[in-house]
Design a protein around this nucleic acid. Structure first.
Lengths: 219, 219
DNA sequence: ATATTTTTTTAGGTTAGCCTAAAATTTATA
DNA sequence: TATAAATTTTAGGCTAACCTAAAAAAATAT
């Protein structure tokens, strides 16, 4: 049996692994779990004994196939519940993360299966993140980061790769939401900031930092 | 803050309190929590310090107003989730208890509020149990036990006061489900067993034990 | 290459929630 | 009403998941 806490560690290691090829450091995990490095070391030893991660002391950690599958199932549940909260209960996309953090640990394959069906087998969550299937396969959505789009191209906003309430509220303020079209007018040479037109309105200015966190579909 | 485990204790003490005017014994709690009496004693002391129960050692326990309110909110969540599982996800009424035991501990007033609305403000769960409102008030449904119905009366089955899978499957086998009409043909004098007609079909025989667990509406 | 800084681990401790065994109290029975 | 039986509590321990402080290893800088 795998505990609530262990599931969280796996999920966090999975997320960190998506950003690098290298082993994940103890400190990086500690930061996201909001614990101290010493606690992480304890847990890594335990997860290693359960064959959910491969870990040699001082050498960082990575998920085993088994650990990755478990992490993907937790992510699947998290994202399905987010779809439920937004599409069925009418929550805003910046309000669902905390609740989904709790719901993702409910244990019932039958429940997940039926929830998926009830929601119409969604491919992605309200932030545009792909939802893994019951075998842990991620759908290939082919989205790009807005920061990789050249001048004069027009794209559709499909998601975000950062979920802080702050960030989502900033997007709302400048008029960015899922489905709007974004026209890249100018890419600034030295800091990669962008001048864009949102849904045909007056042009806006966004930083490279923000552009990196926006997922868009190109035609 | 109140923990998962504390919530379970409160819920169990609430249920036991519904069956008696007296203080609840340590052993009774231990049986339902599936723990040992010594563990219950520990927890009762803790709940008492938090003013959720009134407890004097060797004298049993009862909920304070504060403890009762918390218990009612947990029960509210449990029953709302059961409605969701049956009405929206298509589960059978004998499959939902375990899952609702987990869901009932999800913490978000906003979620409960929206779920209630999404379900159409149901008055009772799939077993016919009343759902307390957000102030902890139980709707008065006025159901009676089938064991209190006299000969020649016809009633409608509205619920059960026992939720074991065994029992629910027995009911399914003899053709008893919510909404069917029950005609009491004969009440046996010495063991109070009943001969009944279910939905106008051939007559069936049920024990007093079973009749006590069936909730019915009289016209 | 050595010294310094940073990262990670170990050692030992805490709390929540459980346990067993023994002691205290209450209840039932002779 | 005294004794036996049942219930409940106390005492002392365990495990999971955390902590701090100190030690060990790795990375960085001189």
């Amino acid at each position: 049996m795998i505990s609530f806490t262990e599931e969280n560690y796996l999920k966090i290691i999975y997320k960190l692994s998506a950003e690098t090829e290298n082993e994940i450091s103890t400190n990086a995990v500690a930061e996201l779990t909001q614990t101290k490095a010493a606690s992480v070391t304890d847990m890594l030893r335990k997860l290693s004994e359960k064959q959910l991660v491969s870990y040699q002391k001082y050498q960082g950690v990575r998920l085993t196939k088994k650990g990755e599958n478990l992490a993907l199932q937790v992510i699947r549940k998290h994202r399905l519940w987010e779809v439920f909260l937004v599409n069925k209960l009418g929550f805003n996309w910046d309000e669902v993360h905390e609740i989904a953090e709790e719901l993702e640990h409910i244990n019932s394959d039958e429940l997940v299966q039926r929830l998926d069906e009830f929601l119409g087998f969604p491919q992605c969550d309200p932030h545009g993140d792909p939802i893994p299937d019951s075998n842990g396969r991620m759908p290939e959505l082919g989205y790009k980061n807005l920061s990789d789009i050249g001048e004069n191209q027009t794209v559709i906003m499909m998601g975000v790769s950062q979920h802080s309430t702050n960030f989502l509220q900033y997007l709302a303020k400048i008029g960015l939401s899922l489905g709007v079209s974004i026209n890249v007018i100018e890419v600034n040479d030295f800091d990669k900031s962008l001048t864009i037109k949102i849904g045909g309105n007056a042009s806006s200015f966004i930083s490279y930092e923000v552009a990196k966190s926006l997922l868009v579909k190109v035609f």
